[in-house]
């Protein structure tokens, strides 16, 4: 049955199996409570935002994107949820807890589950409010215009964009810049990452957008995932090198 798969499918399957293997090995060898400290600009920038938020008693605005199940299912659209959870755990009892906006119905419901779960986990269910995680527009433009309107609020400490977004979101980053609001963009799409260069925002690129949450919450599964990511990166680099040599040697067509 496997012979019916194309070369690309077989490569994807092999990479998937390799990734799973690396994740399991990392889960087994990772010592609990002894995570290695890797200085990372993304993590530091997010921690700085949190610090400002709790010091000044202001809220952090998180844009979770507008694409998880809207047109076609895109898992990258959920990448902001783990970051939301990691940040929420540190700001549950702030004067202004984290406020998130989603541009997708499924994402809005999942985000609300995350918020509710975080409060329930901290035995503070009575502090949970549905307004902490809202739907704001169901198209990229509607979502962005809604987000743009939320930014000028004087009770905001910073803006974090994490998830799948179109480059139109640069309107929100520009608005944050105009109001001297620190911003971080961890957008999964390439065009979104390009838009993240606007103004003074800290722009996370490539796999860094998935790393910030893992490095913030320091959970064993997240840290093992980061370790497996590094191993997989080495394996892919070696594979590409080998492929190039084989192609130059005429072995591969």
């Amino acid at each position: 049955m496997l012979s019916a798969l194309t070369l690309n499918d077989q490569l994807a399957l092999a990479l998937g199996v390799l990734g799973l293997l690396f994740l399991l090995i990392n889960l087994l060898i990772l010592k609990r409570n002894k995570p290695k400290h890797i200085p990372e600009p993304g993590k530091q920038a997010v921690e700085h935002l949190l610090h400002v938020s709790s010091e000044e008693g202001k809220r952090l605005v998180v844009g979770l994107g507008h694409s998880l199940a809207n047109s076609n299912f895109d898992l990258a659209g959920a990448s902001g949820l783990s970051l939301q959870l990691a940040l929420l755990k540190r700001s549950l009892f702030n004067d202004h807890p984290l406020q998130s906006y989603s541009g997708d119905g499924v994402l809005a419901c999942l985000s609300r589950m995350v918020v509710r779960g975080a409060y329930r986990g901290a035995l503070a269910s009575e502090l949970f409010s549905g307004s902490l995680s809202q739907l704001s527009g169901t198209s990229p433009l509607a979502y962005t215009s809604s987000l743009v309107n939320q930014i000028p609020d004087s009770s905001n400490a910073g803006l974090l964009l994490a998830g799948q977004m179109s480059p139109v979101v640069l309107l929100a980053l520009d608005q944050a810049d105009r109001h001297a609001l620190p911003s971080i963009s961890a957008i999964a799409s390439l065009s979104g990452q390009a838009a993240g260069f606007i103004g003074n925002s800290v722009n996370l690129m490539g796999e860094d957008i998935f790393n910030a949450a893992g490095k913030l919450d320091q959970r064993k599964s997240s840290l093992a995932g980061l370790g497996a990511q590094d191993w997989l990166r080495i394996a892919i680099s070696l594979g590409l090198l080998l492929g190039a040599i084989l192609k130059m040697g005429g072995v591969l067509p």
Partner: peptide, 19 residues
């Protein structure tokens, strides 16, 4: 690569919804 690891964490229930 990042997405693959996230997919595994979601698939095997390591990416919880808070609690």
């Amino acid at each position: 690569i990042g997405l693959l690891m996230m997919a595994f964490r979601v698939l095997f229930g390591m990416e919880g919804s808070g609690n």
